[in-house]
Design a protein around this nucleic acid. Structure first.
Lengths: 230, 230
DNA sequence: GCAGTCCTTTACACAACCTTTACGTTGGCT
DNA sequence: AGCCAACGTAAAGGTTGTGTAAAGGACTGC
């Protein structure tokens, strides 16, 4: 069961969110004070924390900073204004995402799911993984950090290798650009950031050098997928 | 089974780490007092110790100092702040690595694996090894501590010999600069430390004198590898 | 003390890499 | 059709890691 903690002094809002999230199958708890929320979040009993920036007593950013001393529990920040400064500071302090009030419950759920899915991806990364893996004409040798096309080694940079490994380990599944950016580049995807696109472009070029059959497919607005032959 | 001991007074944190490490297949035990941890660590029942610097009662650095009187058990230090001084002192006292809180479980696991892999490398070094070894045109005679290119003896310094032997014994595998530094130079790789690069450069020059075919390949950001001809 | 050997540090050049910029293309939308 | 956001990619820009000559320092044997 996935538990979500909300720290927000707006009682009406927490009740509204409670309804939606419980409908979606989440366990939900709300508190209205910073210190109380901090203590609960530190217990690591929650898989995600919704944190309002404007809190009486202890500021939301302070709560976040203190929490990050102890825990990497995912945090989705909420704020009353579309305050760009709060946003930047929050993300720098280690928030996982940001949502401006007022938000639609639907969008909130979407953001929550995106974060949880990514956390799951990261945990998968930590699991012991297959050292060797074959997808169509691509073969991964993770011990030597090498990827082959048929019998030719791909000369990849560290970043390119990470991206392609991720796509191979999830062959047939769509991997979002956000996920790729966070897992392979180690940073959140920014607006107008074309870095990832360039890496994909370069990887494609290197693969095509040996195998013309295009492999990495673009799903516009969703991400990339390494097609599995049937 | 690899057992890890954590000495940290933050009970919530030890529980979190316990979950992650057990998920990764490690045996895990946590204690919250310095003296208690010291006694356990001295028993050599653990392959690695996670040690918090800020401990009530007995300071983490003191624990480390005392432990080093008896045991070479690898120690990964943890600290609440990004305190550079603690870091330097800790590494001088013989800690194997350092991680600032808060850390992601992912990073913790990565550091642990890096340390354990290096310990394994060191133990391999101590095992009886093949006295003679041929890699392409290079031939190792470890009884005489000599390396030949075709039939020409390489005149190597002690350090150069150690580096090249290590690369030869792991021919085809990437050997990280950190590993090379610790195993051949006997010290951790520091930022801006170019000593190892110089040794590699000199070794290359000496090999090239007899065999122009470049052998030690650089893998940017990863390390060096002695290519095996196929 | 001096010369010789070896390891390390310094300094600069360079190459590899990642990112940004800029412009062209595509595909969904009204 | 026309618009616009997302995407592809060549080229430029900036950053970081590496190669190596030369100087500096530590040690040894004489």
């Amino acid at each position: 069961m996935t538990s979500i903690l909300m720290i927000d002094d707006d009682v009406a809002l927490t009740q509204l969110v409670a309804e939606y999230l419980q409908l979606d199958g989440y366990e939900f708890k709300a508190v209205h004070q910073g210190p109380e929320g901090l203590e609960l979040a530190r217990s690591n009993a929650f898989q995600l924390v919704l944190l309002d920036i404007m809190l009486p007593g202890m500021d939301g950013l302070t709560v976040l900073k203190q929490l990050r001393q102890y825990s990497y529990c995912p945090v989705l920040m909420l704020t009353a204004r579309g305050d760009e400064i709060d946003r930047v500071v929050g993300l720098e302090l280690g928030a996982d995402d940001y949502l401006a009030k007022p938000f639609s419950p639907r969008e909130l759920v979407a953001r929550i799911k995106a974060i949880l899915r990514r956390v799951e991806l990261i945990q998968q990364q930590q699991q012991p993984q297959l050292a060797s893996l074959q997808v169509n004409s691509l073969r991964l040798d993770s011990a030597k950090r090498q990827i082959f096309v048929e019998d030719n080694v791909l000369v990849l940079t560290a970043t390119e290798y990470q991206i392609l490994e991720l796509l191979m380990r999830h062959a047939g599944d769509v991997v979002s650009k956000e996920d790729l950016s966070q897992l392979a580049l180690g940073k959140r995807l920014q607006l107008y950031d074309r870095s990832l696109d360039m890496h994909i472009s370069n990887i494609r070029k290197k693969i095509a050098h040996y195998d013309e059959a295009e492999k990495i497919q673009t799903l516009r607005g969703l991400g990339y997928v390494l097609l599995e032959g049937e």
